[in-house]
Each structure stands twice: as structure tokens, then as C-alpha cells.
């Protein structure tokens, strides 16, 4: 369980940010939409940014979410992201220059091989988590795939990771539940709610 002190308090004068990073097809855009809607529900201003199009074809995908009482830029500058949510292990390494020394990181323990690794030209950095831990104090590692399987829908990995993220954000659980209800089609709502709660307890 998360300690109270580790919850990201919302300070109205300060803009905070979450950076989600992973691979096309992992549901990152949906996840960042949900996060924004929950932020809006709790009365904050919020902006998010990502790149569509070519990047979807198995390339790396990022989504910046920034929130506070008034947000101007939808993208965060390097060295200023508060929380990194990595949907894939190797992708946790790619954006470390966006973080501050005290930033917190969630890593989904999943390996998706990029082309150069498949071809045998480069090695997959299997020690990614240890490397991240060398530079950052708060690193939470989860297996969202297993959580999603337990919840009964393998595609609910993204909501499982939102559940993990929710431990660190000062947002009412009922707001998360409301938005998940609204966003997903009826037949997958239960699995996604379950995945979210399992992630929140992970």
C-alpha cells in the first residue's frame, strides 16, 4: 500500500506532469485520455500531447500529461517531469533526461523487442530496471500483463498501470471509477475496473 506522504499533492500554483512512454498499440493514448478526464473531473486544468500517425506502426509512443490550476504548454520540458510511467522496460530508459533527480518511476516489466534487437544487431538492455534504480530512488516495478490476465482481459494492461499510478496521485477513487465507466464499452468495463483496482493495490 502507498504511504500518505508519497501522494502527489496538488498545489494550485504549480504545474505537474506525468510522462507515459511505451510502444504503439499498448493503449497509451487511451490511458492518458483517462488520466486527463479524471484530472478535469477533479476541477483542474489539464493538457496532454502525443504524436499520432507514423509512430503508431510499432514505434515508440509518448504522451505528456500536464495539470494544475492553469496549464499553458501541453508538453513538458526536459528535466522537469514528475512521474514517468513506462509501459515497457526498455522505454523507461529512453526518456530519463525528461526527469528530475527526485522524479518517481513506474515500470511495466515487459520486453518488446525493437527491430535492431530482432535482427541481432543490438542487445536488449535486460538490466534496464537496475540501471534506472541507480539514478532514481522511487522505482516501482509491476507486471501489468499478469494483472490484466487476472482481471480477465489482456488488453486491460493500460488500466492496470493507471491503477498503479493512482497510488501516487491525489485523486478520488470514485472519479477514476466514473471515468473508466464512461470511457470503455460495457462489455469490458468490469475487467478494466478490476484491472485498475488490482493495479492500485499492487
Amino acid at each position: 500500500m502507498s504511504k500518505k506522504s508519497s501522494i502527489e499533492k496538488i498545489n494550485p500554483t504549480e504545474v505537474k506532469s506525468v510522462l507515459m512512454a511505451g510502444v504503439g498499440g499498448q493503449g497509451i493514448l487511451r490511458a492518458s485520455d483517462i488520466l486527463c478526464l479524471v484530472m478535469m473531473e477533479s476541477g483542474m486544468d489539464v493538457k496532454k500531447s502525443e504524436v499520432h500517425g507514423m509512430a503508431q506502426r510499432g514505434g515508440c509512443v509518448t504522451s505528456h500529461v500536464r495539470y494544475g490550476s492553469k496549464v499553458y504548454s501541453p508538453i513538458e520540458r526536459k528535466g522537469n517531469v514528475d512521474i514517468l510511467l513506462a509501459f515497457e522496460k526498455l522505454e523507461s530508459l529512453r526518456y530519463l533526461d525528461y526527469l528530475k533527480p527526485d522524479s518517481r518511476i513506474i515500470i511495466n516489466e515487459l520486453e518488446l523487442y525493437p527491430p535492431a534487437v530482432n535482427l541481432g544487431d543490438m542487445t536488449y538492455p535486460g538490466q534496464a530496471i537496475d540501471l534506472v534504480k541507480e539514478s532514481f530512488k522511487t522505482v516501482k516495478v509491476v507486471k501489468a500483463h499478469e494483472i490484466a490476465r487476472k482481471a480477465g482481459n489482456l488488453r486491460a494492461e493500460n488500466t492496470a498501470l493507471l491503477g498503479v499510478l493512482s497510488q501516487w496521485l491525489d485523486l478520488e477513487i470514485t472519479m477514476w471509477e466514473k471515468i473508466i465507466w464512461e470511457v470503455f464499452p460495457k462489455k469490458v468495463v468490469d475487467a478494466n475496473l478490476k484491472a485498475f483496482h488490482l493495479g492500485r493495490a499492487a
Binding site: 510502444v23 504503439g24 507514423m54 509512430a55 503508431q56 506502426r57 510499432g58 514505434g59 515508440c60 520540458r77 526536459k78 528535466g79 522537469n80 526498455l90 522505454e91 530508459l93 529512453r94 530519463l96 533526461d97 525528461y98 526527469l99 528530475k100 533527480p101 522524479s103 525493437p114 527491430p115 535492431a116 534487437v117 543490438m122 542487445t123 536488449y124 538492455p125 538490466q127 534496464a128 540501471l131 534506472v132 541507480e134 539514478s135 532514481f136
Partner: peptide, 17 residues
């Protein structure tokens, strides 16, 4: 801007495919 010390590891690129 100052950023944290980055691990010295080759990060394979992930272009669209």
C-alpha cells in the same frame, strides 16, 4: 536544462515498422 546522470547503455531505437 540540467538533467539527471543517464545510464551508459546503448538504447536500441524503435522506429515505426
Amino acid at each position: 536544462p540540467t538533467t539527471v546522470r543517464l545510464p551508459e547503455v546503448a538504447i536500441p531505437p524503435r522506429p515505426p515498422n
